[in-house]
Design a binder for these strands. Structure first.
Lengths: 252, 252
DNA sequence: ACCATACATGCAGAACCGTGCAAGAACAGG
DNA sequence: CCTGTTCTTGCACGGTTCTGCATGTATGGT
């Protein structure tokens, strides 16, 4: 039995049963309890489970499935998310896009921050369950599988009924000419609808997206307040955007 | 049974019932009252419950922890969920309630089932992401933290625009006189709105809920098609319901 | 005031944990 | 192909934590 295989088995078991008992799974797989404990310790270190006396429990039952498949957010995204989280004012209202970067923003928010979060992502909504002071409003609609967010006419319509101080948007491309782009027209429309409902809109773009473009335009640069990125300090694309009046927030 | 799991169970019980009686829960879980008392003392030390003579009470009436609820009675719920999943027809439309039992239904659905699922639970929506053939429609609204579902006026309104063949509802109490009940009035209204949009409504009730009642009525028995439960074969409550024309689907 | 029940405490046995260690597998370099 | 290195795995050991029981005390009802 491969180590990675064992890890997968543990995560699957955790998702299915809601718990892991070290002794039982060791017997089941025919390996020592020590190995199970070591694996559980590692998984807990990555935030994929919660170690308890005798075994392990899901870290947060609702999102464990998602986490198991979604590797931990890479460093760049975490840094971008931390800067973005700093823009959120206590008591304010935040429109939060879907995607892994947005999920990282949730994790970067103080646990007890009191604010209103409006989102079209069930994943984000589920992740916010352990922020007891956060008021969450979910925009419903047809769920687009590939991005795991609500889109379409119903979702855009639902967005018309909200407003916020700040909107944090993820995109897949940031290109001097193409502007801010994403890969799906429905998603692009939804992002536009979200941005239109906030006083300020900041775009989250980890470095690998700078200079690339996808097929569908979300917004021109003129319509956003700023860009949050971990790109190199003197990236030519970034400097060009700064010259065009886009506020640039760099991670350090 | 893991110690941490036991603690979760206590918190869940506290959230659901509003109180804990040390003697009862000790008997139920097959552990000594001393362990229960020790757990309650610890929980009280962390401010998660209020210790009283004979058991414990919520520290404040509103304290309900969704996460704690995940650990309750996974076995009975899985069986109930399996039966419920069997009612879902390929190509059909299903309205699925929130809650752990409903989550278990998702896990019990064939991975490649093609159907439409309408839900007001972001957790359910997120869980359905790995059913590639399932079309998911999410009903938006204000997220109620304690049950992790969208409720309130917006959610009820959104429900008016859908319809389905089958609705699977969870409840917290099934009582001959009180009917089908739950602990929150908004949730009760939402469940009613969901049931009204489906041709058939089946209620999922694992055995520990039979014979109990919560404060808010969801529906009278006359308005549901059937009840799915893992209660004992000749449970008096169940037999009474059957006599009143409620279709009873038992797990085996 | 009395009694039944619930409680805290101490204790012993059991279960669980981390660490160190050695045997073996995987692997890179010669 | 051999050898040294690194990583993994299982085992042994000592320490920690948990659990149920016994004891004596406190509490609430009658």
């Amino acid at each position: 039995m491969l180590a990675a295989e064992r890890r997968d088995h543990l995560l699957a078991l955790l998702a299915r049963e809601g718990k892991i008992i070290a002794k039982d799974v060791a017997a089941e797989l025919g390996i020592s309890e020590d190995s199970v404990r070591r694996d559980l310790r590692d998984l807990a270190g990555e935030g994929l489970c919660q170690r308890v006396y005798g075994g392990a429990l899901p870290v947060s039952p609702a999102v464990v499935d998602y986490h198991a498949r979604q590797a931990v957010a890479p460093d760049g995204k975490r840094k971008v998310a931390a800067v973005a989280a700093g823009l959120v004012r206590p008591g304010g209202a935040l429109i939060l896009d879907g995607g892994t970067t947005a999920l990282a923003v949730v994790h970067a928010l103080p646990q007890d921050l009191a604010c209103t979060v409006i989102t079209h992502s069930p994943t984000i909504a589920a992740a916010l369950l352990d922020h007891p002071q956060a008021e969450v409003f979910l925009l419903g609609g047809r769920i687009f599988k590939h991005s795991a967010v609500a889109c379409g006419a119903a979702a855009v319509e639902a967005a018309q009924n909200v407003s916020a101080d700040l909107c944090l948007l993820g995109v897949t491309g940031v290109h001097p000419e193409a502007g801010l782009t994403t890969g799906d027209p429905e998603e692009a429309a939804m992002k536009r609808a979200l941005a239109a409902r906030a006083a300020d809109t900041y775009v989250l773009a980890s470095s690998e997206k700078i200079g690339t473009a996808s097929r569908f335009r979300v917004l021109p640069f003129e319509e956003i307040s700023g860009l949050i990125t971990d790109a190199a300090p003197h990236d030519p694309v970034i400097e060009q955007l700064a010259a065009r009046g886009v506020e640039i927030l760099m991670t350090d």
